[in-house]
């Protein structure tokens, strides 16, 4: 069974009285442990597809099965719980909470679990160790470089040990060196920790690190490109 199965999904937004189509009858499967890169020009619908898979947006029609659960049918509360347990988020601009330390940022998603304070501390320390920032726990985001901030964001994404990681332009705001480090880290999460990763990117070098690359254009999914 595919980890993610998107079937005949359409998505359109309402602008005034006009319906603007963003995704046209898209179907895609992502296998467990796959590293998928979604590429395409601006406005092609790749971020929309990512948001639908991550459960932060709802399709106009079609179904999205993630590990057998049709997330399009989940209520808002159930969907929020599902996201907290199953999905790790990585954003282009890191989206760290500026007033919280690296430790506290990584601890945030764990606040939604039933873990004790001690267990949360262990999880945070492990996640920050994985991204190589165990020595920066008390630093606030503005005391960290862009690459380090994105690594904290990755630590936050893996803190709850989710099955799926969604990354929206994870290298879009980074220099080449930092971007390489981030991609190496994502590769490691995929190969070493078995995380299923869906990544949206404009950067061909970042896309090269993915196992599968799919292109979108004007809301249509183009042919599959598989790498060995």
């Amino acid at each position: 069974m595919a980890a993610i199965s998107v079937t005949n999904v359409t998505k359109s937004y309402q602008r005034d009285k006009t319906s603007v189509p963003v995704l046209n009858d898209v179907s895609i499967s992502v296998q467990q442990g796959e590293f998928l890169a979604l590429m395409g020009p601006s406005g092609s619908g790749k971020t929309t597809l990512l948001n639908l898979i991550a459960g932060i947006d709802r399709p106009t029609s079609g179904s999205i099965l993630v590990q057998g659960i049709d997330i399009a049918t989940l209520g808002e509360t159930a969907l929020a719980k599902w996201r907290a347990q199953k999905v790790g988020f990585i954003f282009q601009f890191y989206n760290l909470i500026p007033v919280l330390s690296a430790f506290e940022n990584v601890e945030l998603p764990l606040m939604l679990t039933s873990l004790s304070k001690k267990e949360r501390k262990q999880q945070v320390e492990t996640a920050l160790s994985v991204v190589g920032l165990a020595d920066r726990m008390t630093h606030s985001p503005n005391q960290l470089s862009g690459g380090q901030q994105q690594r904290v964001a990755i630590a936050r994404a893996i803190a709850t040990d989710p099955d799926i990681i969604v990354a929206d332009e994870p290298t879009g705001d980074l220099d080449k060196l930092s971007a390489d480090e981030i991609m190496t880290l994502l590769e490691r999460l995929n190969s070493e920790f078995g995380k299923t990763i869906v990544m949206v990117t404009h950067d061909p070098r970042a896309a090269e690190r993915a196992k599968v690359v799919r292109h979108l254009d004007k809301g249509d999914l183009l042919a599959e490109e598989v790498r060995s």
């Binding site: 808002e76 929020a80 907290a84 347990q85 989206n95 500026p98 945030l108 939604l112 936050r156």
Partner: peptide, 14 residues
Amino acid sequence: TTEIGTLRALGFQR
């Protein structure tokens, strides 16, 4: 606003 969006994406309820 972005923080609110992030917190909601992470699973925090309204």
